[in-house]
Amino acid sequence: MIRILTLGAVALSLAAAPLSAKSKDVVFVTSAAVKDKPVVALDKAQAYILMRSDMATTLQLMKVPSAEDQAAYDQMRADAFAEAREKYVKKLASYERTKKLADSLKKKGSGSTVTVPEKPIEPTETNFEFTAFGLLSGVSIGPINRFAKQEGGASVYLQAVTPGVYRIYGPMSVVPNGPVMGTCLCMGSVSFEARAGEIADMGTLLVKPEGVATEAEGIRSLNFQLVPATADMAVDARLKDVAIRPAAYRPIGKLPNYYGIEVGRIAAMPGVIGYDRDRIVDLTATGGARN
């Protein structure tokens, strides 16, 4: 069953602190679909992600923070925490003044009353909530703005992104100020690198393949299959002068269900990712496993 949650509800559930004006200047990811035009000019400073699918579909990626990203994010959080502390001090002072006045009037029996607000909760490192990095670094691919259309509804997408490592977060539709629909691959997924001036070829996303397991140890594996790129996969002639590398997939750990939608995991991929009950098994290593 697909669950739907508005972005407004997501924001409320996260209770994310407002970013300061300084923090708002930090942009972790820029992203834009490369549209279907006779001639394509790509920016060498950008990285590109190529995805084929057997039907028009949508996929959500999230950038994995680099060391620089993490440092910037930590500073954003620190700034927001300091701002929250400043507001708390002011609210606490106002609360104490109001409470003192109310107590005084009650003691004098003047008959006048003052409404005392709830005592503000002090922000601490434990209870302070801040927007997760993944929600600041999302990339939505599809279902519109296809780079090419093929027979039988098959689609090709080409997305310009900030260079870096990206994880597949799930087949979901994330519409700004609209509903979020789909499934989060929170319990197991893969990541790959997108390099500046190159195209990372994700291969083909089969949304309706046959023979893919749907249940394993109580954890849902989705009814789609990611087939990595191979040398014999056709490449659009408009991209013949661009370096295209098959995405080198690696297993990546679990993530929270930020949008409150259905939870699953990517189907096992030979030589890349498998599962031992609820553990993710790294098949690119020598039998290594991690949660």
Rank of each mutant, 00 (worst) to 15 (best):
V40W: 06
T58V: 11
D232V: 14
F133Q: 06
G271F: 12
G170V: 09
M181A: 14
S110G: 13
A154K: 15
Q60G: 05
Y88H: 15
G142E: 05
T115R: 13
K87C: 10
K37V: 13
M181V: 15
V116P: 05
T230V: 15
K99G: 01
G288S: 11
G288P: 03
A247I: 03
L7M: 13
A132P: 15
A229M: 04
F28E: 01
P171I: 13
E96M: 11
Q60D: 03
V242R: 05
A33K: 03
P228G: 04
L158Y: 00
I121E: 14
I244A: 02
F28Q: 04
P171H: 10
E210Y: 00
R146K: 15
F147W: 08
A237H: 11
I252W: 06
L92V: 02
A82E: 13
A82T: 12
K22R: 13
L226T: 08
A216E: 15
K37G: 04
V34P: 07
M187L: 15
P123F: 07
R290D: 10
Y259E: 13
P209T: 09
Y48W: 08
Y48V: 00
V272L: 02
R146I: 11
C186F: 00
P209H: 11
M181N: 08
D276M: 08
L206Q: 10
Q46F: 08
I219R: 14
P38M: 13
A196G: 10
A289L: 03
A78F: 04
F81H: 08
